[in-house]
């Protein structure tokens, strides 16, 4: 039996990690998605990038795709566990409003990366997504390919505590999982990231990232200075709150001041707090009793920003309509 597997594997060369990313990006670009670069602030998931979290708000249609390195300090395993990472890579596709054939498009993307659907078992199993800190949730599925969860597929329903209309389709590919599957390796670190075309030398995922996993696991679990982390958290929180406190003055701002008001800056500060919370949590510095309280603080920031973002759009629209009128 195993003989026939290698037969099949031999027939086609699996995509490298970077080819996988290229192919998916090309696929979605061809279907009208703008390719965005990864967001440059620490996030725990592609959903937290403003390209998803803020763009899903309001009526404006969006089609966007981007790879997002996602940091989850508590998931670090010092590079010792072949299946878990401190930082993994998601490919995030946002389609607002979702096209009717969104599921079929998704399946076509699997074909594009070399998965012959007739030779595999694919199931859409219920898996509803929720980010309480962002007041965000949706319903959807985990997509199972031969027993492996390769994608989270979500119809976003609420964000920042606000109902979305139109709603938004979100497809999140786990790139390491898919690459490991395609290349049939048992450790993430053995994934071939790229092949030098002239020498044929294979550059592995481990070569590119193992040191990072080792050191950031150690930092998150052993080195991070708890006192300083709290200080950072408090400082970022204070600055974010300072900005949010000015939201109430939107009504009195002129158009230029309003459109330059840094809601996006406030969001980065909120994301910093979220990441610091995750670090403190990994460090074991947050007791269960404290946990609820700190999460409520961060929720106030994140949801506050979402509401400010919506208010800013609305105020700008009304100013612009007045001008036209």
């Amino acid at each position: 039996m195993t003989g026939s597997v290698s037969e099949v594997a031999k027939k086609k060369r699996a995509l490298t990690f970077q080819e996988l990313l290229f192919t998916l990006q090309r696929f979605w670009a061809d279907r009208g998605c703008v390719l965005q670069q990864p967001y440059d602030v620490e996030v725990g998931a592609g959903t937290m990038s403003p390209d998803t979290f803020l763009r899903v708000l309001g009526p404006k249609p969006v089609r966007i795709a981007y790879a997002q390195p996602s940091r989850r300090p508590a998931d670090g395993r010092y590079g010792e566990n072949p299946n878990r990472l401190f930082r993994h890579t998601q490919l995030q596709v946002i389609l607002k409003p979702p096209p009717v054939r969104i599921q079929e498009m998704y399946l076509e993307s699997l074909v594009a990366i070399g998965i012959d659907l007739k030779e595999h078992d694919i199931k859409f199993e219920e898996d509803n997504w929720e980010w309480p800190v962002g007041g965000a949730w949706g319903v959807g599925w985990q997509v199972m390919l031969d027993g492996l969860e390769i994608t989270q597929f979500t119809y976003f329903q609420q964000c920042g505590g606000m109902d979305l209309d139109p709603i938004c389709g979100e497809i999140t590919y786990g790139l390491e999982r898919i690459a490991g599957f395609l290349q049939d390796v048992d450790s993430i670190y053995d994934i071939v990231w790229a092949v030098e075309p002239d020498t044929g030398r294979k550059v592995t995922y481990g070569e590119m990232r193992l040191a990072e996993e080792e050191q950031f696991s150690a930092y998150s679990f052993d080195y991070a200075d708890v006192g300083k982390l709290w200080e950072h958290l408090n400082l970022y929180e204070a600055e974010c709150l300072g900005l949010l406190s000015q939201v109430k003055d939107f009504g009195e701002m002129d158009e230029l001041k309003l459109k330059r008001f840094p809601v996006l800056g406030a969001y980065e500060l909120a994301l910093k707090c979220s990441h610091l919370f995750n670090l403190l949590d990994a460090r074991g510095a947050i007791s269960v009793t404290e946990r609820v309280g700190v999460m409520a603080r961060i929720r106030a920031l994140v949801v506050g920003v979402a509401k400010a973002y919506a208010a800013q759009r609305e105020a700008l629209t009304s100013l612009q309509t007045q001008e036209v009128g």
């Binding site: 039996m1 026939s4 099949v8 595999h120 390919l145 031969d146 599957f181």
Partner: peptide, 13 residues
């Protein structure tokens, strides 16, 4: 052949 591939995938997971 397909069953072999699917079995292999499930065993891997």
């Amino acid at each position: 052949a397909g069953v072999a591939v699917i079995r292999h995938g499930n065993e891997r997971v």
